[in-house]
């Protein structure tokens, strides 16, 4: 390689490197980071017995509904519509979630009753220990269909 070409290539290489570095620093600088304790953290929502079967209880700060199915199993349902992100209220009269924005409707367990929503409402990871329920709003679960895979049942009481 001629010296002139080598120098030219080096300049270009260095320029690309500098550009890449700047872009990296810029991107990292503005990237989102999660703070613990707020939405995105853990929520202790109470004891199993506080929630009768067939109940739907909203948790505003956690942005989810604690759903107890008729068979006694628990789900933490994220309130954000899977269509375009509106907040979905529980309609106690019709016993379903109805989105005000474009009319999607969801079953108690999140299953789609009415499009345009393309998939059931998302869930948050839920655990039960010593009768106490804990929801991790940092762990969102997307489902294609609402089966009972994610339903959590309380330990059998003695």
């Amino acid at each position: 390689m001629k010296r002139r070409n080598f120098l030219k290539a080096s300049w270009l290489g260095l320029l690309a490197l500098a550009g890449g570095e700047s872009a990296f620093i810029g991107l990292k600088f503005v990237s989102p980071h999660v703070d613990a304790g707020e939405f995105g953290g853990l929520f202790d929502v109470g004891a199993v017995d506080d929630f009768p079967s067939g109940s739907v209880t909203p948790f505003v700060n956690g942005r989810f509904y604690l759903v107890r199915l008729n068979d006694g199993g628990f789900l933490a349902v994220y309130r954000q519509c899977t269509h375009l992100g509106c907040s979905v209220p529980w309609n106690a009269e019709q016993q379903q979630f109805v989105c005000p924005c474009h009319g999607s409707a969801f079953e108690r367990d999140g299953e789609v009753l009415n499009p345009p929503a393309p998939r059931p409402l998302d869930l948050f990871a839920l655990t039960i220990k010593d009768g106490q329920i804990r929801v991790d709003t940092g762990k969102r679960i997307e489902r294609d269909h609402a089966d009972d895979r994610y339903v959590v049942y309380p330990e059998a009481t003695a």
Partner: peptide, 27 residues
Amino acid sequence: DPAHSPNPAKAAWYFMGIQELLLHFHP
């Protein structure tokens, strides 16, 4: 109020064409 979406929740007017398309097509 992040907890309550208004009904109807309309987009900005210059996106209304796309919003209308959304009612007819897969997003």
